[in-house]
Design a protein around this nucleic acid. Structure first.
Lengths: 204, 204
DNA sequence: TGTACATCAGTGAACGCGCGTTCACTGATGTAC
DNA sequence: TGTACATCAGTGAACGCGCGTTCACTGATGTAC
């Protein structure tokens, strides 16, 4: 790190800090890039030097907290209680996290979720990492003999993520849906997903 | 319908027609409201009289086709082949439909999916209808004895939708993912969902 | 049936806003010798 | 170690674009009597 790089990093951190507090206080739709630049004591064009656009700035400014929340949830997983308990724990932790500012995270999802992968590094990268993690957990369950050997671990992990994202979507859109209700809903869904709903369970 | 209402409806239809062809040809992001107004032979302000904004216009202009596609898929369901076959049929039909212009439908999802329910009439309404339908199908399977009586039909239907939307999201984002691959992926996911992946399937 | 008035769809031009981009410039830092 | 030049982060002002909104207006249609 040269002095030049240091000062560049410092400017970037200044912008990220200003962005975080402005977005958090006023909401993403009510902040302009120029507002944030003023708050950071920096020229508007400087923000565009560091971040492609407002969405990239929002995404970057929220990424660290989300990562921390995930890591914390991961560190406190009740591994001995089985797959269902572990997954519900993760989900419940994340719902609590997002509940601190649902509206802001709704905007983040809205603005990044359907972007093509290459436009969308931090969000997708994080989810892919966690997907990997869950796939590994499912593989471990297989060796413990609790999950059927012929099940596709990666697709099972994807399924779990889709179910999580589905309930999370409802949660972010609907202020009336409490953390507890959302978690309960996902717990049932997950239980049905893990055990299947069919009676003669030998699918096609 | 008075003459006044007739002419109003006619103007609206003119706008919708122009919007449909312009969006389809140039892509939603490359059309302006003024472009569409010019194409429809109407003043820009007239569009705002009929539709709240560009997103509402996009949503309205695509709604009819989507509804038709759903109805067609529904009319050709292989009911006698069981739940898995029926759901895969629906999904496969919809993937083929969306494949006619993935980019356009991606934009539609991007711009409407995370909006709060009250902002988002046509999309959500349609999905809620289909959710209802699938829940009823699952109830019927219960009375046939193929689905466990204690399963929650509504949550099972929601689960199916979340899985569908998950794969659809991948499909819309990733040009490399073919209709066949996406359908196959969902078929496996659905199979695992219906039969469960656990060996001792008596979940919590 | 006719008249006088009310309603309302649509017009077209103008406006303000936020975003992203451009560009010539400054001044500090880094590098070649 | 010093000098001369190159690099590059950041500046600040200006620009063009698309969106949504506003507003005074027109003229056809509807309604009360």
């Amino acid at each position: 790190m040269s002095r030049r790089d240091d000062s560049k990093a410092e400017t970037k951190a200044l912008i990220l800090g200003a962005a975080r507090s402005m977005f958090w206080e006023k909401g993403a739709d009510r902040c302009t890039i120029r507002d944030i630049a003023a708050e950071a004591g920096v020229a508007p064009a400087t923000i565009i030097v560091h971040f492609k656009n407002k969405t990239a700035l929002l995404d970057a400014s929220l990424h660290e907290d989300i990562e921390k929340a995930f890591s914390k949830a991961q560190a406190t997983m009740p591994i001995e209680d089985g797959l269902h308990a572990v997954l519900v724990h993760m989900v419940s932790s994340m719902f609590s996290f997002y509940d601190r500012n649902r509206e802001l995270y709704r905007i983040q999802f809205r603005d990044t979720f359907f972007e093509p992968d290459h436009e969308n590094p931090t969000m997708i990268k994080l989810l892919k990492e966690k997907l990997e993690l869950i796939a590994i957990m499912i593989e471990q369950e297989k060796s413990k003999g609790t999950v059927r050997a012929e099940a596709d671990s990666f697709l099972a992990a994807s399924s779990f993520f889709f179910l999580y994202l589905g309930v999370l979507g409802d949660f972010l859109r609907d202020r009336e849906l409490s953390v507890a209700s959302a978690t309960e809903r996902l717990s049932i869904i997950l239980d049905q997903h893990l055990t299947g709903i069919l009676i003669f369970g030998e699918g096609s």
